[in-house]
């Protein structure tokens, strides 16, 4: 199993300098991927521009949107943005996408919320055509087929989209059991659809490392980010991985459940969070050969 880390690009008030430093430093660590989130009605940096910048200051680390709210953009624009980041980074981009749960994001973009699922289906068709088309819509692909497409979401529709269009599936985070359930559905959809091989499976989790004060900052920022869920925000906050042991356990249980790549999201935008996480991952042997996915 590989371990990726997210940029703290949704942390209110975080500076561009810090994000670029963060990106540069991830290359020295044991991480395979640098990811970003996407949210209109929040302070979040625009994901494609951010990854393009991160790609410019790095050479080998993968770049991924986890996840981009695809229906906020038209299919053509999304394809161009994705192809651009991919081309600028030398083919390191993975397009993770979904429909997103928040009405305010759609309101901010002036788009209808209820029809977002249908729009995603249309967008996925457009993406495929664009990535493999004559290049009329976007820069030439770094790779033959364009960026990998990874689907997020928990509905049956999400798994059907995976079977049809996806190369992989990205889970939103939570106890390993919930990942395992989703992973099984992903594999079922894949096999039922007659896709050869297996889908690449991504998991996610939130972390904060350090003293009690740092952990508390992390908790507060999670609570604030998820306030739109009402009482359920407590549940997410309670799942914050706040010790090296918790992170190691989480990673191992995810690997056992068949996760191919685990993305860890910081809740405190300090560079030392990255250093601490790199230490945990290295010392516990969590990345690559350290953690083998079960057959």
């Amino acid at each position: 199993m590989q371990i990726g880390v997210s940029l703290p690009s949704d942390s209110p008030g975080v500076s561009g300098d810090l994000l670029l430093d963060w990106a540069k430093r991830t290359e020295q660590g044991p991480f395979s991927t640098l990811s970003v989130t996407d949210r209109m009605a929040w302070a979040t940096y625009e994901p494609f521009a951010t990854l393009a910048a991160a790609g410019a200051v790095t050479r080998r680390i993968g770049l991924m949107t986890a996840i981009a709210i695809a229906p906020l953009r038209g299919g053509a624009l999304l394809a161009k943005s994705a192809a651009t980041v991919d081309a600028l980074s030398g083919g390191r981009f993975t397009l993770g996408l979904g429909i997103g749960p928040r009405e305010d994001d759609y309101a901010a973009a002036g788009l209808d919320f209820r029809s977002r699922g249908r729009r995603l289906d249309t967008i996925l068709e457009q993406l495929r055509a664009a990535f493999e088309g004559s290049g009329a819509g976007g820069p030439r692909n770094a790779s033959l087929r364009g960026p990998r497409i990874v689907i997020g979401g928990l509905s049956d529709h999400a798994f059907a989209r995976l079977a049809r269009y996806g190369d992989g599936y990205v889970h939103g985070g939570g106890p390993a059991k919930s990942f395992a359930k989703a992973a099984e559905k992903a594999r079922t959809a894949w096999t039922d659809g007659g896709r050869p091989g297996t889908p690449r499976l991504f998991g996610q989790g939130y972390f904060a490392l350090g003293g009690a004060e740092v952990i508390e900052r992390g908790r507060r920022s999670l609570k604030s980010y998820y306030a739109f869920l009402g009482p359920f925000a407590e549940r997410i906050t309670a799942g914050l991985l706040a010790t090296p042991h918790a992170i190691a356990q989480y990673a191992r249980s995810y690997a056992d459940a068949g996760c191919d790549e685990l993305l860890l999201l910081p809740t405190v935008p300090d560079l030392d969070q990255l250093e601490r996480l790199a230490d945990v991952v290295t010392n516990a042997g969590l990345a690559n050969d350290g953690v083998r996915a079960a057959p």
Partner: peptide, 16 residues
């Protein structure tokens, strides 16, 4: 008897 995608519209049930 198999589950899985049949028509272009329509979404199968993927529960266990």
């Amino acid at each position: 008897v198999i589950t899985g995608i049949v028509q272009f519209e329509g979404c199968p049930r993927y529960d266990a």
